[in-house]
Structure formats: structure tokens, C-alpha cells
């Protein structure tokens, strides 16, 4: 991917979550993007609790954060700029997210063909070596796409 596309993604970055209604509702925030990499965060939110006895967030909230971060990593992994769609998402839950702590999701597109991006992602609450969940995903390039030289 070209520097031009990366520059464009940094400009778009914050709006990718604020203009995605479901990401906005959950409170997912853009943190960073690099070539084939993306980081997003999710602050603790009582509306996303899955078990009121423990205050632990629901697995679905972690799923959505990992999907969102993986989606941006896939966009940042293709040679051309355009939308992507999740084909498959595998998530392993290692432990419960600690109540009150912000969850960070880091996604890496380790391979992208012309149409498909392959992603690994991890969600943690401060210590990368103690993950809450890990994900493996495939994304498909969809819709109209821009080449780096077409970006003004």
C-alpha cells in the first residue's frame, strides 16, 4: 500500500468509527492505522455488560471491536483503497475482560491478495501478552476502488 493511501486513512481514521452507527453506539474509538495494521479501543461501558453479577462486558462487544479493528487493517492491507466486508471471523476468548478497563484491539493484515485480506487480531486491556481474545479473519475487497495515483 502506498503512503498516499495511508495518509488518507489517517485523515479518515476518526470518522471511520464516528460515522459507523454501531461502532459509535458501543463507543469504539480509532487509535492508529499503519500499513496493514490498525488499533482501536473500547472504553468500559455499563450498557455492554454481559453478566451483571460480574460486570464483565459481553463477548459480542469484544467481537464487534475485533471486527471493526480487523476491518480497518484489511482496508490498510489492500493495494487499492475501498470498502471491505467480513467473510469469516474466528474468535477465541481467553479470559473475561476486566471491568472498568478499556479494551484495545490490535489487528494485522499479514497477507492480502487482490480480493481477500487475511487478518490476525488480539484484544487486551493493557498487557498484550495477557490477551482477552484473539481473532482470525478474512475480508473481501468490495465496491469501487481507488488506485494510489488516483488519490488527490
Amino acid at each position: 500500500m502506498s503512503d498516499k493511501i495511508l495518509e488518507r486513512l489517517w485523515e479518515m481514521g476518526p470518522t471511520l468509527t464516528t460515522e459507523t452507527p454501531h461502532a459509535k453506539q458501543l463507543g469504539i474509538k480509532f487509535v492508529a492505522v499503519d500499513k496493514g495494521r490498525a488499533t482501536m479501543s473500547l472504553s468500559y461501558n455499563k450498557e455492554l455488560i454481559g453478566d451483571t453479577n460480574t460486570g464483565v462486558l459481553h463477548g459480542g462487544a469484544v467481537t464487534t471491536l475485533l471486527d471493526q479493528a480487523s476491518g480497518l487493517a484489511s482496508i490498510a492491507g489492500f493495494e487499492t483503497l475501498g470498502a471491505t466486508a467480513t467473510l469469516s471471523l474466528r474468535i477465541d476468548y481467553m479470559r473475561a475482560a476486566t471491568p472498568e478497563k478499556t479494551i484495545i484491539a490490535q489487528a494485522h493484515c499479514y497477507k492480502a491478495t487482490k480480493h481477500v485480506a487475511f487478518i490476525r487480531a488480539v484484544a487486551h486491556d493493557g498487557d498484550e501478552t495477557d490477551p482477552i481474545a484473539t481473532a482470525q479473519a478474512c475480508f473481501m475487497a468490495t465496491g469501487p476502488r481507488l488506485n494510489a495515483e488516483d488519490i488527490k
Binding site: 460515522e19 459507523t20 452507527p21 454501531h22 461502532a23 459509535k24 453506539q25 459481553h58 463477548g59 459480542g60 462487544a61 467481537t63 464487534t64 471491536l65 475485533l66 471486527d67 471493526q68 476491518g71 470498502a83 466486508a85 467480513t86 471471523l89
Partner: peptide, 18 residues
């Protein structure tokens, strides 16, 4: 609030997963 792509539009994949 469950939309993931307002342009298409499409529900959020993470939301459908949840």
C-alpha cells in the same frame, strides 16, 4: 444504531455476531 455501513446500508457484522 446497529448499522455498520451507512452507504450500502448494512448491519454491522460485529453486531450480527454479538
Amino acid at each position: 444504531e446497529n448499522i455498520g455501513n451507512p452507504t450500502l446500508p448494512a448491519l454491522h457484522g460485529g453486531g450480527v455476531g454479538g
